[in-house]
Design a protein around this nucleic acid. Sequence first.
DNA 1: ATTAATAGTTCAGCCGTTGAACTTAGACGT
DNA 2: ACGTCTAAGTTCAACGGCTGAACTATTAAT
Lengths: 417, 417
Amino acid sequence: MVEPSPAGQHTLRRHNSALVLRAVAGEPGVSRAAIAAGTGLAKATVSSLVDRLIAADLVAETGPVARTGRGRPSTGLTLSTTGPHGLGVEIGVDYLATCLVDLTGRLHAHRMRPGDNRARSAPQVLSRVIRVLRAALREAETLGVPVGGIGVAVPGLVEASTGRLRLAPNLGWRDVDLGSHLSTALADRLPPTGVVVGNEADFAAEAELWQSGPAGPGGQRDFVHVSGEIGIGAGFVVGGVPFPGVRGFSGEIGHIPVDPNGPVCGCGARGCLDRLAGLEWIMRDAGVWDGRPGVARPPAEVLDVLVERLTEGDTRSRWAVRAAGRWLGIALAAAINVLDIPTVVLGGSYAALEPWLRDPLCAELDTRVLSSACGPVTVVRSALGREAAVRGAAASVVRAIIADPDAFVVAGADPAG
Amino acid sequence: MVEPSPAGQHTLRRHNSALVLRAVAGEPGVSRAAIAAGTGLAKATVSSLVDRLIAADLVAETGPVARTGRGRPSTGLTLSTTGPHGLGVEIGVDYLATCLVDLTGRLHAHRMRPGDNRARSAPQVLSRVIRVLRAALREAETLGVPVGGIGVAVPGLVEASTGRLRLAPNLGWRDVDLGSHLSTALADRLPPTGVVVGNEADFAAEAELWQSGPAGPGGQRDFVHVSGEIGIGAGFVVGGVPFPGVRGFSGEIGHIPVDPNGPVCGCGARGCLDRLAGLEWIMRDAGVWDGRPGVARPPAEVLDVLVERLTEGDTRSRWAVRAAGRWLGIALAAAINVLDIPTVVLGGSYAALEPWLRDPLCAELDTRVLSSACGPVTVVRSALGREAAVRGAAASVVRAIIADPDAFVVAGADPAG
DNA sequence: ATTAATAGTTCAGCCGTTGAACTTAGACGT
DNA sequence: ACGTCTAAGTTCAACGGCTGAACTATTAAT
């Protein structure tokens, strides 16, 4: 929704600060003059804004030299690497991951702590999350970098307005008020932006957007990022901005009915995509894993075994992945007909399976997406691995700062000076 | 996308003008003082902005009296009924409709001209559209009301960036540059806002939003409006704003695959919703119409026959509509899992069938929408009939003016003064 | 008639942006 | 080595829009 608030002079500053910072982020090393030319702002304005951004340690000068040709050489500007960092946590089904990224998106610290979270109660896991976060905050302190905010990725429906986790089937959680719980527990060290909770698939999409630079994956700033794991989720990016849906529950493509009379899914419905193309079932169908679904997860190595067999040409594995590709194509055709986002990024474990998923997937998309008559649906493979969600959680903090730096500028200007 | 343009003082005016105008639109009869209190702007600012809006004839004073109690009585403000009007045209499969609405959304003139457009070539239909538009413009002139812009509703994929109609299966058209064609043909009488082409389902959703007041249907400003006719389309409204998708092709729920191995649809794919729950097929299955699909359309009265039989309790009709309701539920479950818009408005011919569609539809939604565990999906019936699309086309013109009046204010201030 | 209360206007002041003039700093040519 | 040229960045008066306080206008209540 458009903000229904009055606009004053400070609104201009805010808007233009964001504009300038975005220019710096989009083209590291730009000069003030180039920003002025690119944005349409006057040189004087850009200088004034840049000074403030430098004072807040969001932007840094790369040094006074940057030879171009004739005339006074320009002073390059970049996002400050000593500015506020984003701290990301992912509460996975069988691990806890953290990472720290700077304003440019570069990874500074990454930790992975295995351990089945389904075996523990929500409070147990939460106190572990708090310990892990405190450790990460300490680590940032020893590294000498300030933490701007914390992003928390969870595999479930997160209410955007409140930060409550409403439903996490794979964790077996319901109605956990993650946002305020973590905020109060960390009240003594709460970073400026606070704690933002979100869905892992949405964060993964954000990481993809970040990783692939300002142009986005495949040169697109609009894409569907599919996180294919045990459960299948999607994150949407429209015009370079995440689309969270009304309440934040968008992207649950794992529960699109692709075969209305098909097998029963864990959610109780019949023929959900999760049940027909989820990693667990692909592995069962391929015969690379014989665990019962939902009881214990296939270990990460099983994916490697599957890929190996696929490479060798194993018929059963190939058949299983082809079938999954077709079902995925049907679900994505539904999603694209609904949303009109003609680029698909295969992420998570699907990235590794892309060579074998691609053809059956594209075949379904070509016949079933109405707008494919007006231009093909592009399918690309994610550049990021399984750490996409954590990185996205951390990056979302940083993205929020870049999208609206002014609050941070005035807040940061006081203690800095 | 967020606009990457610099913000100056004029941007403030623009934003705040829209803010004030929206306040007037949302609560007809408000005083300047109430607007100031409601928006947070200073009284002086509101006065200044209102004066400009009155000068541009977007706002009118209702007369200097409006007794409240003690103190100086307030001067009520409303949207001007003599201000710019929106002219809407709908190119239906077997009719051409026009209408004229004022800033408040009230219908001033409405014409319906039957005639099968599939029998004619696109240029033939276009010249007829131009004649019809010229007639409507003359009529507006004799009524003494200015026309602010023209909205054109078409049953097909319209490229938002260019106004080109890329594909209209039910008309048999491909790649018709409606926008620029109409603009040049009407160049001598082109209204300020020009010509905007859009999908009929999107416009219908916009009409629904308008009709149901600032709160939206069912008190929601987020909903999926389903236009159920021969083809099934949907328009999405998120936060009170239409969601057009990346290229403007969103909402093609008629081609969601609901039964991957089902019957072949006109688009070539198998088991599309159109083929299983489109009006033509409901009528065939119900036995109220025996025309061959796609050859000639069932006349409008057939719907009345169907409704009559349903009311009488005819088993075959009820069975056919129940089946359609289930398929529709499956498709909408997919859409809602993707988009997270938990309110469905049944529009078009589906509005008349709502009593019989409702139960099977809701049953599917309850089991198949993952987030239904966090709150039920609401299903309501549209207040508007089949004229929703034309009205939406006209209303979209007016909505654009209200959303960004400033361009109109400065443009209108010159010739007015 | 006086007082109280509310609506709307006027005006000096503040703030951010702007464009022009100015300063800075290196490259090129002789 | 020196002056000239070019482009980057800064300074400053001016402009436009918002604001709060003071002021006027208009009605009800005492």
